[in-house]
């Protein structure tokens, strides 16, 4: 189950072939007229749409319990007295001019906002950004999600009373649709409490765009971690350089096999950087396990290095230079 170079080469060849075929096909085919929505609006707005869609298998009426369905907000799609260019067009505020669709029933004559829509993701998101490109969404353009062809409605559901991606307990399931490896990581024994529904992905990540690594809510990894772990902010008298720089040098942010989401068990974790002559340089083998030939070793068992150097996040003790006070 390893990914070998030949496999990668084969995949690249396959892609190249696909590109070639697609390119040639596009040039040679008698291209039918591309789907288009038309520019004419319906005669009666939502009353036209609901003639068919009120009893639709996918329930749409709960939108009237949401902010989008508020009739007394001049910014809302259903505003009685529209106060913005996009407001008050009812269903067609988001789905676009619907006369062609209403007349033909052609699903490609309306912006369904579904991934199967004839419209590319950027066109689907453009509708939403017309009203919502503010505050946290100023960085959406060229963000990781936008670059990967994600549209707003790939994550958000607007016709339900409560959008699952905006509720702490249900949000991770939405994210796992694409972030499959992360779902597995959150089933490991040492995790942040996402599986328990206590926090959600957006407590740390900014899905609408961020220039930090991992699309974090704060500019850096540590500033993000300090929103919950403020006691580790310092600055300390004696700093542990990697802890001051980036928590993920030692910790896995999602989950780990070992305690405290550490990437490795001590002492190996610490011995990647600490090689001073004496005990840090000594290879700790199973001889130090209980009943082993060297006897139970404090360098290996319980907390390992942490048994003595317990202040790994920094110390404010005048004698804490070795992070032991």
């Amino acid at each position: 189950m390893t990914i070998t170079k030949p496999l990668l080469a084969a995949l690249l060849c396959g892609f190249a072939l696909s590109v070639g075929l697609n390119t040639r096909g596009a040039a040679a085919a008698d291209a039918p007229a591309p789907p288009s929505q038309g520019t004419a609006y319906t005669d009666n707005g939502a009353d036209t749409c609901l003639m068919c869609h009120a009893a639709w298998p996918y329930p749409i009426l709960p939108i009237f319990k949401t902010k989008h369905g508020q009739r007394d907000d001049p910014r809302s799609p259903f505003a009685r007295s529209p106060g913005t260019p996009f407001a008050g067009l009812q269903c067609e505020t988001c789905h676009g001019p619907g006369a062609k669709h209403a007349g033909s029933g052609d699903k490609n004559a309306i912006n369904s906002h579904k991934p199967t829509s004839f419209l590319p993701p950027e066109e689907r998101s453009k509708v939403c950004l017309g009203c919502h490109e503010n505050n946290a969404r100023t960085g959406w353009h060229a963000s990781t999600h936008e670059n990967n062809g994600i549209a707003c409605t790939d994550c958000h559901r607007l016709h339900v009373e409560r959008d699952p991606v905006r509720a702490t307990a249900s949000q991770p399931q939405v994210c796992y649709k694409c972030h499959r490896k992360t779902r597995a990581e959150y089933n490991l024994p040492s995790v942040h409490p996402v599986r328990a529904g206590t926090i959600s992905c957006s407590d740390c990540h900014s899905p609408h765009g961020s220039t930090s690594d991992g699309m974090l809510v704060k500019p850096t990894v540590n500033q993000t971690c300090f929103t919950c772990h403020a006691e580790k902010r310092g600055p300390f008298l004696w700093e542990h350089a990697p802890a001051a720089e980036n928590c993920t040098i030692c910790h896995h942010p999602h989950g780990s096999v070992y305690h405290a989401r550490l990437k490795k068990n001590p002492p190996l974790l610490c011995q990647q950087c600490h090689t001073v002559s004496g005990h840090p340089a000594v290879a700790r083998t199973p001889a130090g396990l209980p009943g082993g030939s060297a006897g139970a070793s404090g360098f290996l068992l319980a907390g390992g290095c942490i048994n003595c150097h317990s202040q790994v996040h920094g110390s404010n003790h005048p004698s804490g230079v070795k992070l032991m006070r």
């Binding site: 520019t39 004419a40 609006y41 009666n44 707005g45 939502a46 009353d47 609901l50 003639m51 009120a54 009426l61 009237f64 319990k65 369905g69 009739r71 259903f78 529209p82 260019p85 008050g88 067009l89 009812q90 676009g96 001019p97």
Partner: peptide, 22 residues
């Protein structure tokens, strides 16, 4: 963009807008 239509007659009579607690 498409020209904005006249929405003065879009009464939204079929819209189940509810008030109160739910």
């Amino acid at each position: 963009d498409a020209a904005r239509p006249d929405t003065s007659k879009w009464e939204c009579k079929s819209c189940p807008v509810e008030q109160g607690w739910s």
